[in-house]
Each structure stands twice: as C-alpha cells, then as structure tokens.
C-alpha cells in the first residue's frame, strides 16, 4: 500500500513538474493570444512595426543559414578529411559559439566593430559599417549558429565509404565532380538537419542582436527584440501576438526537423 502511494506521489510530481515548467507557460502565451480575438490579433500582428520585425527576422535568418551552409560544410569537410597541425584545437573550438553566453558574444562583436576599434576605423576608411545595421544582425546570427551544420555533417563524412570516393577518381571523375556526385548526396541529410537547427536558432536569437543591431524600428528591429520592447513598455498584446507567430514558426521547424530525422533513421 505504501509502495503504491509512493509510486503515485512520484508520478504526480513528475507530471506536475512538466506541466508547471513547460506546458502551462507555453499554453499561457497561446491562451493570451486567442483571448485577443481573431481580428484584434490580426491587427496587432499586421501592425507596420511588428510585421516588419517578423519579415526582417525571417529574411535575415534565411541569409545567415545560407552562409552557414557554405562555411559549415567546408569546415566539416576539412576537419574530417584532412590532417593538419592544430586540427584538434579547431575541432574543440567549433562548439565555443554555442557555449558562450549570448551577452558575452554581443559585447565581443560590439568591441570589434565599434568605430573606435582599429577594425572599425579600417572598415570606416573604406566606407563600410558593420555595426547597428542589418549586416551586424547577420554577423550575430552566423556566429551563434556556427556549430550546427558542422556537427551535423561531420559524422556523415566520417561514415562515408572511402572506396566509393576512390572508385570515382579511378573512373576519371574530377575532384569537383566526385564531390557533387558522391560526397554531397551522402552529407545532404546532415546539411538539411543542421540548417533547420541553425535557422530556428537564428530566428530565436536575442542577446547578440540586442547589443549590436541598434534596434532601430523598421530597420534593424528583429522579432525577439520587438517582443522585449513591448514587454518593457507593458504592451502585453503586442508582445503576445508576435510571440505566438514566432513560437508557431519555431515549433513548425522543430516538427520538420523531427520528421527528417525519423526518415533518416530508416
């Protein structure tokens, strides 16, 4: 009897924990969102500033992901296929952007790009500014999503059948052709999974962007910073509506990621 009681107590605690910690707060956003009523919700989301923030975030996240696909695949390729001095250190360094607190990364890029630093002056002299504009946001997004594609592609490259690559060479294919016809198809699932993760992280990023984007409405204000601004000015409606859109988008990406992962298993 006591045993049973203990069991039920434990189970209720665990389920309760899940509800209090995750389910209830997430539902609170949606409940609040629906309580606005559909027309009100639509009006808040299509508010000029909110809509601009949402589309800007999606557009820049796509660009950052595309950049990441190129450099991530390149780095994964070099780190698995070549031996060279310092490789081990670089390999451990891949995860640093993920491990670094985002406020720290933000301060870091602020220091690099500020007009007072020599980098800032150098860029200024050739007429380029990378701070407080959209390129700053892309830099921030590329930095925080750095590990995702590398880590998704690496294991696939390690498992790649060396014989196939050699066979392709023997049959007279060029390096580039071998990459396109043999290597690329093998790592494509990793690139897709990694870029979905990178995309959802770029959508959600707040710390780095808040510090280096300048947060200018209609120009460099991204969705997460918009939400923060609305919370600060006690506009719950605005914060909720954009949160619902951003959350739904992230959940969709998560769902697609899980689908592709499951297909990859078979």
């Amino acid at each position: 009897m006591r045993d049973k009681l203990e069991k039920y107590a434990l189970r209720s605690i665990l389920i309760g924990y899940l509800i209090v910690l995750i389910v209830a707060p997430l539902s609170a956003v949606y409940v609040q969102g629906f309580s606005l009523g559909l027309s009100n919700f639509w009006k808040t989301v299509t508010d000029e500033m909110a809509l601009h923030a949402i589309t800007l975030t999606i557009r820049l996240a796509v660009i950052a992901t595309l950049i990441q696909i190129i450099i991530g695949t390149l780095i994964a390729y070099v780190l698995t296929r070549y031996e060279f001095p310092g490789k081990r250190y670089l390999n451990s360094l891949v995860d640093l952007p993920f491990a670094l607190p985002t406020a720290v990364s933000g301060v870091m890029f602020l220091m690099v790009l500020t007009p007072n630093s020599f980098v800032g002056q150098m860029l200024d002299s050739i007429g380029i500014s990378l701070l407080f504009n959209q390129s700053a946001i892309i830099i921030g997004m590329v930095f925080v999503t750095f590990p995702f594609i590398v880590r998704a592609v690496q294991p696939l490259l390690e498992n790649l059948d060396e014989d196939q690559v050699q066979a392709s060479y023997t049959l007279g294919a060029s390096k580039w052709r071998t990459f396109c016809k043999v290597v690329f198809p093998a790592i494509l699932p990793g690139i897709i999974a990694g870029s979905l993760l990178a995309f959802s992280r770029a959508l959600a990023e707040f710390g780095v962007i808040a510090l280096i984007s300048g947060n200018i409405p209609m120009e460099t204000l991204v969705a997460s910073v918009y939400i923060f601004g609305q919370i600060e000015s006690f506009n719950t409606e605005g914060a909720t509506a954009v949160s619902v859109v951003l959350l739904t988008f992230s959940f969709l990406v998560l769902w697609i990621t899980n689908l592709t992962r499951r297909r990859g298993d078979i």
């Binding site: 959802s200 997460s224 998560l254």
Partner: peptide, 12 residues
C-alpha cells in the same frame, strides 16, 4: 520544446 523557444518568450 524549450530548445525551440526564443529565450525572450521563455521569460515572457
């Protein structure tokens, strides 16, 4: 889910 949620929304 917590991995997919923007930290700002997590606080909100």
């Amino acid at each position: 889910l917590p991995f997919a949620v923007s930290p700002v929304i997590g606080g909100f």
